[in-house]
Amino acid sequence: MPRSKRIQPTVIVKRRYEDEGEEHNSAWKLAYADFVTAMMTFFLIMWLMNVTTVEQRKGIADYFNPVALSQANSGADGMLAGRSVDKTGALSTPNAPGEHSVPVAAPPVVASLGDSDRQPAGRKDPMPNPPGGKAAPDRNARAELEAMLDRQAAALTEQQALDEAERDLRRRIATTPDLGALADGVLIQQTPQGLRVQLTDQVKASMFNVGSAQMNDQGRRLMRLVATAVAAAPNRLSISGHTDALGYADGAKYGNWELSSDRANAARRELIAAGIPAARIVRVEGRADLDHLDAANPLAPRNRRISITLLRGGE
């Protein structure tokens, strides 16, 4: 083959054409996201309708209501509020001629006002009964809630009064040195029944003589001190007398039951003499030797005591 006729190389050019549909491959994702959002909103609305009451749903609807106008008012609210001359209201189209107004469709009115802006017209009962009588249970629930809140407030006030009486009594005992050993035998504690003050005998100090229901001078001073501390609290009082296990030689005629009852009654008389109204004392009882403070030692002096309780309201 002659050299002048060389074979030219063949060049093949491959062109790649992009598919026009590839630009929109992600469009379905946006549509799916919108669908999921709509379904979540739908189920959320269904859930809210199931767990809310009629009044709550109405309140939610009123919250999203863009307008709340009165058809009888015109001008601004408050001190500058006016009244429309026309009973049909102050709503008019801006294209109306100057000599008259053309009524237009009114927006939904949330509250129709009467003679006073604070008193809705035609409504005396703030919670009218809807068809079906569903408002009565709601009113009962509200009344129960208000009663529960009142009870809680009363219990809190009562507890504050008991705490104040306890602090006052402890302060008075600490600042009264002439009580002697009896001051060490005063036990003060809060119980479910109320504030309990127990006046116990000591080894060398006692409110009563042995086997007697006659209160001595130290016992009377201590009883009057207690009366002064509890006088400010309006709570009712309960008094109980207790003895030790030491019995009488002739228990058939007079025993620890009679002695504990007589001592409790003597404490009642001293409280009344110190200024406590007799109507506040609702219980006076003798417990004999049934309730010992020192159960391991039935003859211990501290088992002989007078217990005074400021009762709570429910007792």
Rank of each mutant, 00 (worst) to 15 (best):
W47V: 14
M49V: 08
H292E: 04
D184R: 15
R236E: 09
V51M: 11
L182P: 00
P126C: 10
T37M: 12
T53E: 10
A154Q: 09
T41D: 12
M148L: 14
A288Y: 02
D138S: 12
G255D: 13
D217I: 06
G59C: 13
R236N: 15
K5M: 14
D19H: 08
P2N: 14
A300V: 05
H292L: 13
E144T: 12
V109S: 09
R224G: 15
G255W: 05
L69E: 01
P234H: 03
A76D: 10
T200A: 04
Q152L: 05
A231C: 06
R305W: 00
I188Q: 00
R171M: 13
Q198T: 12
G21L: 13
D115K: 13
N129E: 15
L30H: 07
A135T: 14
R142V: 07
I12R: 12
V11D: 04
L187R: 03
N265P: 04
I306W: 00
N65Y: 02
G241C: 04
G75R: 01
Q119C: 11
F43W: 12
M46C: 08
A90G: 11
E23S: 11
S238C: 07
V197N: 00
V51C: 10
E164L: 15
S26N: 14
T88A: 08
A274D: 02
A227E: 01
G82W: 00
W257H: 14
R283G: 09
I276C: 02
I308A: 00
I276Y: 02
V11S: 07
R123L: 15
A249T: 14
N216V: 03
L156N: 11
Q152W: 05
K58W: 08
P177Q: 06
P137R: 07
I45N: 09
M79A: 06
E258Y: 05
T309Q: 07
Q119K: 13
H100S: 14
V51W: 02
V282D: 06
P94A: 11
A155K: 12
N50F: 08
A181M: 05
M215L: 12
D138R: 03
R196Y: 00
A147C: 06
D150N: 13
G185Q: 01
L91E: 02
V104P: 00
T191W: 01
T157A: 15
H100P: 06
A205E: 05
I272W: 02
P108M: 13
A245D: 11
